[in-house]
Design a protein around this nucleic acid. Structure first.
Lengths: 193, 193
DNA sequence: CCAGAAACGCAACACTTTGTAGCGATAGGG
DNA sequence: CCCTATCGCTACAAAGTGTTGCGTTTCTGG
């Protein structure tokens, strides 16, 4: 007869301390700094406690990104296509500048032991970042302001260049770049009236 | 009186063995597997020899990518804009499928101790991948087949979506996607005759 | 061809990090 | 208030790091 053990996971305070420290380490020193040892030194949480809840580094990374993806709202929209797209793309760019998305992404690819796992988390993360843009495009189509068609393609058009510049090329991306992306997009897809 | 010591670097055979092993480890097991210990086990090269030439793991990564960037040719072009763009973009996609570019990129961001260093290498690597596309665009402008303008922007347009899909979203990218990118690009930028 | 210099291999060392196990202390829900 | 799961601590084995010293091999220039 096997007894089912109900794991309740870490205590709230523990989880908070560990995740906060892990994020700080990632931002300040890079993904390689996210180790049980370092988090213990930073937080005072016992090293064994960390291993208990996150046997593999990838587990901790996953928790971090679940939290990061969940804690995001969708910006308030105005109902005007150009404004909404602008707001959505700006929120993406601001996110680039607030948090080094490139470091986060590197952490995913590297710390995830299995490529498949890390790939799924990374894709979820990126798609989460794109949610506001997708909503703005959807709304534009619904209102008949955008030519109906390949939504995925449109979202890509609006964001791919910005992503490539920031994540892959490490360039500074600002609001002007965002504006240009929106204008060029509207020129191609807005319904002529 | 100080004597200048002329370092000649590793022997050709040593360098070849180490780099080959490092690449294999990166591809098969991920960047975390690139350690002095593992390379020693794989190659028989003494661990101390590896430390001598690459005191920090980042140095080894840099050597790997210098080699990867240098050893690339530019595909033969035909002189026809559509064909040349197709060839250039196809070569990019084929490179995606031959080598896990996403793993390579993750290695850069992660293993480079300093963000700045890793960023530079990553950017060089990406720009290297884009060279054929850039050449095709330059040639198109020179022949008057493309509207003169922002070359960087055009190269981005042709490749950013493909990069985002492969590297960030982990999607399979094939020749059809490449063709669509080229067609859509030509529709926007080709000189009407 | 033959020194001299440089690269290499090997052994040893102190140190850090990882991951596991056992046990007592503690805190929070029923 | 008690029971249970979480936590902290210590101890341990294993692996990796980074360095030193020394003898051997390989390359190179005169």
């Amino acid at each position: 007869m096997t007894v089912e053990v109900e794991r309740r996971g870490p205590r709230e305070a523990t989880l908070e301390l560990v995740l906060t420290a892990a994020f700080r380490l990632l931002i300040d020193e890079g993904a390689h700094a996210i180790t049980a040892q370092r988090i213990h030194q930073e937080t005072g949480i016992a090293r064994t406690t960390i291993y208990r809840h996150w046997p593999e580094p990838a587990d901790l990374i996953r928790t971090m990104f679940d939290r990061a993806v969940a804690g995001r709202g969708i910006p308030a929209f105005t109902g005007d296509l150009r404004s909404d797209l602008q707001i959505a793309v700006d929120s993406l760019v601001q996110r680039f500048n607030r948090r080094p998305v490139r470091a986060l992404f590197g952490a995913l690819v590297e710390h995830g032991r299995r490529d498949a796992d890390a790939g799924d988390i990374a894709a979820d993360y990126v798609r989460g970042l794109l949610t506001p843009v997708r909503h703005a495009v959807d709304a534009g189509i619904e209102r008949g302001e955008l030519v109906d068609g390949d939504v995925d393609g449109m979202v890509d058009e609006l964001s791919a260049t910005l992503f490539m510049r920031h994540v892959l090329l490490g360039e500074q991306v600002d609001d002007d770049d965002a504006s240009r992306a929106v204008e060029s997009f509207l020129q191609r897809h807005a319904v002529r009236r």
